[in-house]
Design a binder for these strands. Sequence first.
RNA 1: GGAGUGGGCCGGGCCGCCGCCGGCAUCCUUCGGGAUGCGGGAGGAAAGUCCGGGCUCCACAGGGCAGGGCGCCGGGUAACCCCCGGCGGGGGCGACCCCAGGGACAGUGCCACAGAGAGCAGACCGCCGGCCGGGAGCAAUCCGCCGGCAAGGGUGAAAGGGUGCGGUAAGAGCGCACCGCGCCUCCCGGUAACGGGAGGCGGCAUGGUAAACCCCGCCUGGAGCAAGACCGAAUAGAGGGGCACAUGGGAUGGCCCAUCCCGCCCCCGGGUAGGUUGCUUGAGGUGACCGGUAACGGUCAUCCUAGAGGAAUGGCGGCCAUCCCGGCUUGACGACCGGGAAACAGAACCCGGCUUACAGGCCCACUCCCUUU
RNA 2: CGGGGCGUGGCGCAGCCUGGUAGCGCACUAGCAUGGGGUGCUAGGGGUCGGAGGUUCGAAUCCUCUCGCCCCGA
Length: 142
Amino acid sequence: MPNSGAFASRRGERGEGFPKSARLLDGAGFRAVLQRGRRRSGPCFTLYLWIRPGRPCRLGLTVSRKAGKATERNRIKRVTREYFRQHQIRFRDGFDCVVQARPAAGNSSNGTLRAGLDTLFAPWLIASPGGGTDPEATPCDG
RNA sequence: GGAGUGGGCCGGGCCGCCGCCGGCAUCCUUCGGGAUGCGGGAGGAAAGUCCGGGCUCCACAGGGCAGGGCGCCGGGUAACCCCCGGCGGGGGCGACCCCAGGGACAGUGCCACAGAGAGCAGACCGCCGGCCGGGAGCAAUCCGCCGGCAAGGGUGAAAGGGUGCGGUAAGAGCGCACCGCGCCUCCCGGUAACGGGAGGCGGCAUGGUAAACCCCGCCUGGAGCAAGACCGAAUAGAGGGGCACAUGGGAUGGCCCAUCCCGCCCCCGGGUAGGUUGCUUGAGGUGACCGGUAACGGUCAUCCUAGAGGAAUGGCGGCCAUCCCGGCUUGACGACCGGGAAACAGAACCCGGCUUACAGGCCCACUCCCUUU
RNA sequence: CGGGGCGUGGCGCAGCCUGGUAGCGCACUAGCAUGGGGUGCUAGGGGUCGGAGGUUCGAAUCCUCUCGCCCCGA
């Protein structure tokens, strides 16, 4: 069952929303991902990802105080959420993931943060059809 | 025009697309929720958590001790280590600024080094007098010895009032005058702190340190919304009831004996994960008037202004405004074109303060200096 | 939300309570011993005591404010 199909029934055909069902909301969910998921690291983030076929993708965020003060931490979380929201339609299969910010994220620009997320999520992303950058692309449930 | 002092205020604006979190209305629903529309969504410090309260729970007859805090006077306030207005002291030409600012005749401790002497002080250099006698010398005088002195030098952060006159061998509050100081009495101004004045007493006794111990006066129960209240899985354990009842199963053992362990359903309390609540209308904001020097208070009118909870308030783009740089243009400013910059910082129960951080900008009052009239 | 601790030469620490001299180890520099190095011995340099105010004659030390770091508890 294609992931985008599950979303289309809930969020309409665009698939760009970010409701609570797309987030990890309790300690059990976080613990499961951190223990069972695969881990990839970049300079700004560490990504834990646990593939759960047929279920909607969910995101959890961990930004410790080492990443910066409250304003910095909020910025990191916003950039990450926005990235997830805009790219979830291109995700290969259902999964839960936890994005953990590293101290270097604190003094990185928004563009650097997005680039770091690109590298980490690359294995689970379907290339945009036609190589274009159109966010209105065809749903990927071929 | 320049330099400066005090106080107050702002913390970019508008639009489009895609998102997030509450509220209200309507509709749909598989009762988990969803759709549409309307409207709302960070700060002056939301920060640090340094004080003070509200609120909640726990403890508590009253009082005291210990510990901690505060400390000129008057006022403001729910309260304060806050604020306002005074007083005293210190700094600045000035506008103004700074001060934990009770008590050192209740007691104890400390004051390094230097210095003769550092606490009911003291003779190093000095100054003065004397000398039966001793040494040098014709002598003056010097050395020495005995005694007087706190004026001068010198030490120090600090050496037991200052100036002048008298006095004396030399000196000294030793005496006197003036100034200063302490205590007492009285008068005037002030609610008071305190200020001003008059008189008397004391020749001066009373160095500093209490952000050293301490004394005096006043204040002070503990925790914190993860407070507290309600609902409540799964799993384990305990209790009660019912069913199953032995001839059952498992472990130790070569086997018997022996020993040990094991069921299903329902109910109850405690209570974890999780959920609901506390949760935003409040010592509230704004405006006018009145009282007050002011902090602030009163009356009336008006407004509702974030409530998240693995934690929302965002992303992208455009235009305008501000500032800077370059080009171009002009007598100069401006206009135009291109590029860049825009801080500190994110609500977590809520208020009143304090403190700290901060790009750029605005307003008011006042002071000093220069120039012109 | 509440509590505790630490900032002193390049590094790790003492000194603070009870105020007057900032000391120890390693490291560094020079000399000697060795053919050279390790090592040993001798001598030497180097510290706004995190920052700003205050109390005091005098502050690393006492007081207030502040900055940074670390660790607990709910």
